[in-house]
Design a protein around this nucleic acid. Structure first.
Length: 524
DNA sequence: AGTGCCGGGCA
DNA sequence: TGCCCGGCACT
């Protein structure tokens, strides 16, 4: 994998921050239509607007370290490498909250056409910028035409007071940030001694977030607003929409209109849109509060951390500073939790009596469980659990392959089962499949402990959209399917004669193999 | 496409 | 019973 920028077909994309966060159109995000993001920094609201109709660029920054592609094609950023580890992404609403713009080295470099920084505080420059961009960027404008911009070109929406206190506010925001109000913000730079696994997991989390939030494709997010379980701050979209409409020329307006139309009205069903739930996590130090609504988390921050009147709905936006959105794969979470039910001392209630079905645990229960695990690393804040939350579809698909989690202190953290585990755990290990609620304790390595989660007669479903249904059916059908006649026994994984000797040495095969029967020499 | 193997036919 | 193979499931 090499670092490169790829120019691709036009699409509406999102550009967040610098070139490392430019709109991306990886395979997994080709349908995103998100047009903009809102970025808040303390009381100052910044917006990054993108020319939705411009030629698009797919800016894939691929880490050479091997964090690269997930099986689903998702590109993970190497946050550390980019020096942008302090940026948090916020998922489906397109809101990207950053503790402080001053903590975003390199964010002000721009890529033509990917987005525009519009600084209403400097209309002249804004106009120049727009015109220069439009003049230089063609539909296929090469990426080498980066136009570095000074950091002052961070756009500020009009609905924010363009007060002279802006500098002070930014300063305050910076100070607050540097006072480690957010461990997430400071983590990458201030905690270099963090163990590598956790560090990597953290990076993956961030990368996952950026993979989605910075991609040019947000339609499922937008459509998700209709999902009751995923509350979305309409303010963001509305603001951005208005901002976009008011910040561009007429010709651009058409593009924007199209983009927003596509974004808000695209009826194409998206994959797994119901499996992802956006939660809001308080970033206040030592506070792991996770709420399902932005208003809730804002109220929490206002009242608990900022000491403001809870009755007042007045908000200067400072709360936004202290929480971030996280995407929780409810499927993975549910299954993961269900899988670990027998081993989790914090899980209330008896384990499922009959065949490990995927207990349909309400989402709110997950939240409370998260909170209840205060003695363990916070489910949503620590690296491994966060990774779990961000497993998303790419890894979830693979889950029929068991993930072996070495038994250890992190076991209680619900697993570093991010789907990338070696799966070669020996000795005492717990093998967890997110897809199937199997929890297998491995005593000693050997054929006896061979783990196989593919049930007999199961037909794999490649479509992710049927993910949940398939799994639930799987859980319910499996016991019966095993007893039905005519089902195949699971294919053995041992090498058979055919593979061992090859076709040219067929005479060395066992008779069963020669007869296309079950191998007798290399039995499982 | 390659592999494993079930089910069935044939001698 | 031994041998072989079509065809399906799975990788």
């Amino acid at each position: 994998m090499d670092s490169r920028y790829i120019l691709e077909k036009p699409l509406a994309g999102t550009r967040v921050g610098g070139p490392d966060f430019s709109c991306r159109a990886g395979r997994s995000v080709l349908h995103d239509t998100r047009v903009h993001t809102v970025e808040k920094s303390g009381p100052v609201l910044y917006k990054h607007a993108m020319d939705g109709g411009c030629a698009a660029l797919k800016s894939e920054k691929v880490s050479p370290k091997g964090n690269g592609l997930s099986p689903g094609g998702r590109v993970w950023h190497d946050m550390e490498k980019n020096g942008l580890g302090d940026q948090r992404d916020t998922g489906y609403t397109g809101i990207l909250k950053r503790a402080s713009p001053t903590h975003c080295p390199g964010i002000n470099r721009q890529l033509p056409c990917s987005f525009m920084h519009l600084d209403i505080r400097n209309p002249g420059k804004q106009a120049d910028l727009v015109s220069s961009l439009r003049a230089t960027q063609g539909p296929n404008a090469p990426l080498t035409e980066k136009q570095p911009l000074p950091s002052t070109h961070i756009p500020v929406p009009r609905n924010r007071k363009p007060s002279g206190h802006a500098d002070k506010e930014v300063m305050a925001a910076t100070v607050l940030t540097s006072l480690s109000t957010s461990p997430l913000v400071l983590y990458p730079s201030s905690a270099p001694t963090v163990p590598e696994p956790a560090n990597r997991a953290w990076k993956e989390v961030l990368s996952a977030s950026y993979s989605s939030s910075t991609s040019g494709n947000w339609s499922w997010d937008a459509s998700d607003q209709s999902v009751p379980s995923t509350p979305s701050p309409p303010l963001s979209n509305d603001n951005n929409k208005n901002f976009l409409l008011s910040s561009h020329g007429d010709d651009v307006n058409e593009d924007i209109t199209e983009s927003t139309h596509f974004m808000f009205e695209d009826p194409i069903p998206r994959k797994r849109k119901n499996s992802m739930k956006v939660m809001f996590k308080c970033l206040w130090k030592n506070c792991e509060k996770v709420l399902s609504t932005s208003s809730g988390i804002q109220r929490h921050i206002r009242t608990v951390h900022l000491g403001r009147n809870s009755d007042s709905d007045y908000s200067d936006g400072e709360e936004d500073f202290y929480y971030s959105e996280i995407e929780v794969n409810m499927d993975s979470l549910t299954e993961g939790l269900s899988s670990l039910t027998p081993t989790s001392p914090t899980t209330a209630g008896p384990p499922p009596v009959f065949p490990p079905p995927l207990t349909d645990v309400p989402h709110s229960e997950h939240i409370s469980m998260n909170n209840s695990q205060s003695h363990t690393p916070s489910l949503l804040s620590q690296s491994a659990p966060s990774t779990l939350c961000h497993i998303r579809t790419d890894h979830a698909y693979q889950a029929t392959a068991p993930v072996s989690i070495p038994a250890g202190p992190e076991l209680a953290g619900l697993g570093s089962g991010n789907g990338t585990g070696p799966g070669t755990g020996t000795g005492n290990a717990i093998s967890v499949s997110w897809q199937s609620p199997h929890v297998i304790f491995k005593g000693a390595p050997g054929p006896v402990t061979h783990v196989r989660t593919v049930s007999i007669g199961e037909k794999r479903q490649p479509a992710a959209s049927t993910h949940t249904t398939v799994n639930k059916n799987h859980a319910l059908i499996t016991p019966a399917a095993k007893s039905t006649p005519g089902t195949r026994k699971p294919r053995g994984e041992a090498k058979k004669c055919r593979k061992v000797y090859g076709m040219e040495k067929r005479d060395m095969w066992c008779t069963a193999c020669r007869w296309k029967k079950a191998c007798q020499r290399f039995t499982d």
